[in-house]
C-alpha cells in the first residue's frame, strides 16, 4: 500500500518517539492550528469569502461536528441521519436563553449542551432498541421533525426564525465582533481540542472498546457482557453534546437563525465528512471535514454542486474505499515468533 507510506512513516516515528518529543510535537501542532488565521498565502486564500471566515465556517465548524458525529457513526456504527437536530437545539437554546434570561453566551453553553444531551436521551432510549436501518430512518425523521416544529411554532419565531442574537462577551481581551471571524475560529478550535482530548481518552479505554465491539457485532458484544444499550446511548449523548455546543457557537456568530439553516442537507454533509475521512478515525474525519469544507469554497463553481458531489462521493467511497482516506487503525504489530 504505497499510499499509506507517509502515514506509516509518521506512525513509526510516533511509536519510537520519547514522551518529550511527543509533547513538543503536540504543542507545535496546536500552536500551528491557532496561527492559521495569520497566514497570508494567495494559494490557500479563497475567492469571494475571506479565508478567515471560511476557516470558521465551514472548516472548523464542520470539523467539530464531524468529530462529534464520528463518535456515533464511526466509533459505534450507529447511522444517525438527524445530527442537524442537535446543532439546531444548541443554536435555538442560545438564541432563546439570551433573549429571555440575563445569561451570557458562556453561561448558556452548558444549557445548550445539556438540552442537546437530553434530546439524545429522549431520541435514543426508544430508537436505539431498533436495528440499524430502522434507526437511520428514525433519526432522519427526528431531524426533520425538529425543523418542522421550529417552523410551526410561532413562539420561537416560526419560519422567520430569531434575530438579534448576542455574540459571546469578550474573554482574555478578545472581542467577538461581527466583523472579525478569527475569535470564533479560535473559540471553535478550542472547543474541538477539548472534544478530541475527551474522545481520544475514551477511545483507548473501556468505552472505546465497547463502542467498537458494538460496531463490529452488536449481538456478540451483548453476549460478551457489554451493555450495548448503555454505550449506544452514551455515544448519542456525547454526539448530541458536541452538536449542541457547535450550534450555540454558530448562532452566536451569525446572530440570526431560521429553521431553513437546519435541513437534512447539513446532516448529510457532516456524514459525508465522516465517511470521506475514515469512519472511526478522528484525524481522518477532520481531514474529511477540511477537504469537504474547503474545496467548494476554493473552487466556487463547485459550490453550487456540492450536494451532488457529496452524494456521489458517498456512493463512490463506499464502493472503492469504504474505510475512507485515513482508515482507522491500519497499523498493527505483526509478531510471529513462536
Amino acid at each position: 500500500m504505497a499510499k499509506l507510506n507517509l502515514r506509516d512513516k509518521f506512525g513509526d516515528w510516533w511509536d519510537g518517539a520519547s514522551p518529550f518529543s511527543r509533547t513538543v510535537f503536540r504543542i507545535l501542532a496546536v500552536l500551528a492550528a491557532y496561527a492559521i488565521p495569520f497566514l497570508k498565502n494567495p494559494i490557500i486564500d479563497t475567492p469571494e469569502t475571506s479565508f478567515n471566515s471560511v476557516l470558521f465556517y465551514p472548516l472548523v465548524m464542520f470539523s467539530l461536528m464531524a468529530v462529534g458525529l464520528n463518535v456515533v457513526v464511526g466509533k459505534s456504527g450507529i447511522l444517525d441521519l438527524g445530527y442537524v437536530a442537535f446543532f439546531a437545539i444548541g443554536a435555538y437554546t442560545h438564541a432563546i436563553l439570551s433573549a429571555h434570561t440575563g445569561l451570557n453566551f458562556w453561561e448558556i453553553i452548558p444549557f445548550a449542551m445539556g438540552f442537546a444531551m437530553f434530546a439524545g436521551v429522549i431520541l435514543g432510549l426508544p430508537a436505539l432498541r431498533l436495528r440499524g436501518d430502522y434507526l437511520a430512518i428514525i433519526t432522519l425523521g427526528f431531524g426533520e421533525i425538529v425543523r418542522i416544529i421550529a417552523v410551526n411554532t410561532e413562539a420561537i419565531g416560526g419560519a422567520a426564525g430569531l434575530t438579534d442574537i448576542p455574540g459571546p462577551s469578550s474573554v482574555f481581551g478578545i472581542e467577538f465582533t461581527v466583523m472579525d471571524p478569527r475569535p470564533y475560529y479560535w473559540l471553535t478550535l478550542t472547543a474541538m481540542l477539548f472534544v478530541i482530548w475527551g474522545v481520544l481518552r475514551l477511545s483507548h479505554r473501556k468505552p472505546g472498546r465497547a463502542w467498537e465491539a458494538i460496531r463490529e457485532d452488536e449481538d456478540v458484544a451483548e453476549f460478551m457482557g457489554v451493555s450495548t444499550l448503555k454505550y449506544k446511548l452514551w455515544a448519542f449523548i456525547i454526539g448530541g453534546a458536541v452538536g449542541g455546543l457547535a450550534g450555540a457557537i454558530f448562532a452566536s456568530n451569525i446572530r440570526s437563525i431560521q429553521p431553513e439553516l437546519f435541513t437534512l442537507n447539513l446532516s448529510i454533509m457532516i456524514l459525508a465528512c465522516v465517511v470521506l475521512g475514515g469512519m472511526g478515525n478522528i484525524w481522518g474525519v477532520i481531514l474529511g471535514a477540511v477537504l469537504l469544507g474547503y474545496i467548494p469554497e476554493k473552487l466556487r463553481f463547485l459550490s453550487d454542486y456540492r450536494i451532488i458531489f457529496f452524494g456521489l462521493l458517498m456512493v463512490v467511497m463506499m464502493n472503492i474505499r469504504p474505510n475512507g482516506l485515513l482508515p482507522r487503525k491500519k497499523r498493527e504489530v505483526v509478531g510471529d515468533k513462536s
Binding site: R209, A210, E212, A213, R215, E216, D217, D219, V220, A221, M224, V226, R328, K329, E332
Partner: peptide, 14 residues
Amino acid sequence: RLFGDMTAVENVAT
C-alpha cells in the same frame, strides 16, 4: 464471530 477490526488483546479485554 470475533470483533474483526479490533486487535486480539482488545477482543479479550472487551
